[in-house]
């Protein structure tokens, strides 16, 4: 069980980007955190917080906790993919390590994802900011199409899935 003891607080320029994207698109900060971590990971871009601005972006602990299953899934994928080549068994330990209120240690998998989230926010920001108001939807469509081409997502259609599930 993944337990969040505190809020995630992002500071500086990165926080400004969080706030801007949240205002522009109505995203929740927790969604931006998750998208940034994944984008930082797949682009291999880590970063650390800066103190260039007084702005902060605060992701409340209870919001994080309500999404803990999904967040943990991201942590597991990222940690395993990164560490399994080095020491598979250790990678498993790190990926599936849990904490609790009684044992509130900071987990490696979270630190790793946070670093990627710090790097990934720049990528997400570049993808979505500086887009004219009328072009925002088209831009998102372009982004999704590019990922669709890159991945094998297109190989399965909803009909295929329904057939597989016998529906």
């Amino acid at each position: 069980m993944l337990t969040f003891q505190t809020d995630i607080v992002i500071k500086g320029k990165k926080a400004e980007k969080y706030q801007e994207l949240s205002n522009k698109y109505g995203f929740l900060l927790v969604d931006i955190y998750m998208m940034s971590g994944v984008l930082g990971f797949i682009n291999n871009q880590k970063d650390v917080a800066d103190n260039d601005s007084n702005i902060t972006a605060n992701i409340p602990r209870n919001v994080l906790q309500s999404r803990s299953d999904k967040i943990d899934f991201l942590y597991q994928i990222v940690t395993l993919t990164e560490e399994i080549d080095v020491d598979a068994e250790n990678a498993m330990k790190l990926a599936f390590e849990e904490n609790s209120i009684a044992n509130p240690k900071k987990l490696y998998k979270r630190e790793l994802f946070d670093d990627y989230a710090m790097g990934g926010i720049d990528i997400l920001y570049d993808m979505l900011s500086d887009v004219e108001f009328d072009k925002q939807v088209d831009n998102i469509k372009d982004i999704l199409d590019k990922f669709f081409e890159k991945s094998n997502l297109g190989q399965k259609t909803v009909n295929d899935i329904l057939e597989e599930e016998g529906l």
């Binding site: 797949i42 990922f147 094998n152």
Partner: peptide, 12 residues
């Protein structure tokens, strides 16, 4: 996009 694109990006 905000809620569903995470695993979409990760899928690759």
């Amino acid at each position: 996009f905000g809620t569903a694109s995470v695993s979409y990006f990760l899928g690759s």
